[in-house]
Design a protein around this nucleic acid. Structure first.
Lengths: 219, 219
DNA sequence: ATAAAAGTTTAGGGAAGTCTAAATGTTTTT
DNA sequence: AAAAACATTTAGACTTCCCTAAACTTTTAT
């Protein structure tokens, strides 16, 4: 089996390997994992020896097929536990991340399987992130950042791409959650912020930072 | 916070501190934890420095008040997760121990509280072991080992004191579970085994080893 | 094109937790 | 009451994962 540390590296590499990223840098990993680059180099050598990553010194790292399989398993567990915490234990979406971060490392195939069943095979977690299937598929739904909507366009919130409590609590205060109906009221050109109407009710100004983290469907 | 290793030592010391035990020996701990006595000595020094145990070299170890508090918290979490696994995820009682052993180390007060609530504040786990309350009380119910019953006496199984899968699977095959109605049919004097009737149905011979691990009420 | 800046790796070391082997303390036996 | 047996601790070492400092490679800027 893999250690918790190894699993955290694999997950971090996976998350930093977005579309069009050929290799993940040591520095990027050290930032995400809050360690020093020297520690990352160490671990990459180790993961490479286990054939979990393709690692070329000074040129970054990529997951192997096996590495991807492992990453998706961890992410599947993390997101299933998040669903459990919110739906069954009534956690709020800003409380789940740290706890799920611990639970995702519990080793038991049976547990994951049964949890999935118990929750009714959910497709997304409380932040709208898709849950990898048992077979290791990660079905992505068509969606766009709120920032890409033009004036008067509408969208329904289906995902938020930042799990930090501070961000999620900010959305709580704005009254934005998964399923919220948003409409662009106005564009403030000089800083790319938008005035957004929420659920045909109050309107708020959202900074471009925030607009990039909220995803909607029905454009 | 305490490390997983520390928590496991504390739990082991607690479990070995039965009634009338003044101090737990290094060897006993090393056996329960499957480590070498030398490693135990090391850790006891460390736990002593943290005031979790009273440790006198060459004379064994006891939990401090704080140590006991920590032990009961871990045991509470372990047993609550066992209930969850059996009642909600349909694990059998021989499948839960190893998984609960991992989950008990997840750190979150809120999680434990909410889990307890979700399960309806259960009083015992699937093996009949009482669950410590949030306040750190461990309510023990009156009960006696099956070995202490005389011929013709009846009892209802309320607890089994061995969580090894092999033992529990043996009970499964005998048809013995929590709630089973047992009656002593005969005593085989030479090896202290008993012939036991199960649920007014079939009868089986149970060795004295097994008889010491099954507890009943209504004597 | 090359020097400076930025990024990465290596070398050496520390904490946690484990081990073996040797030394020391305690208990039992005779 | 000493010897033998047993239990425990200490000493030194290993692994994992992290660190700092120094060396090295790649990228950027002039």
């Amino acid at each position: 089996m893999h250690s918790t540390a190894e699993e955290n590296y694999i997950k971090a590499i996976y998350k930093l390997s977005g579309a069009g990223v050929s290799a993940v840098s040591t520095t990027a990993l050290s930032e995400m994992l809050e360690t020093k680059p020297a520690s990352v180099s160490d671990m990459l050598r180790k993961l490479s020896a286990k054939d979990l990553v393709h690692y070329v010194k000074y040129h970054g790292v990529q997951l192997t097929q096996e590495g991807q399989r492992v990453a998706l398993k961890i992410i599947r567990k993390h997101r299933l536990w998040e669903v459990f915490l919110v739906q069954k234990l009534h956690f709020t979406w800003d409380e789940v991340h740290d706890v799920a971060e611990q639970m995702e490392h519990v080793k038991s195939e049976l547990l994951t399987q049964r949890l999935d069943e118990f929750l009714g095979h959910p497709r997304v977690d409380p932040h709208g992130d898709p849950i990898p299937t048992e077979a290791g598929e990660l079905p992505e739904v068509e969606q766009r950042a709120l920032a890409t909507l033009a004036i008067d366009q509408k969208g329904v919130v289906c995902r938020v791409k930042d799990t930090q409590p501070a961000f999620l609590q900010y959305l709580n205060r704005m009254g934005i959650q998964i399923g919220s109906q948003l409409q662009v009221v106005d564009k403030i050109a000089y800083d790319n912020s938008l005035e957004i109407n929420i659920d045909k009710n109050k309107s708020v100004i959202l900074s471009s930072d925030v607009l990039e983290k909220i995803f909607v469907i029905n454009p």
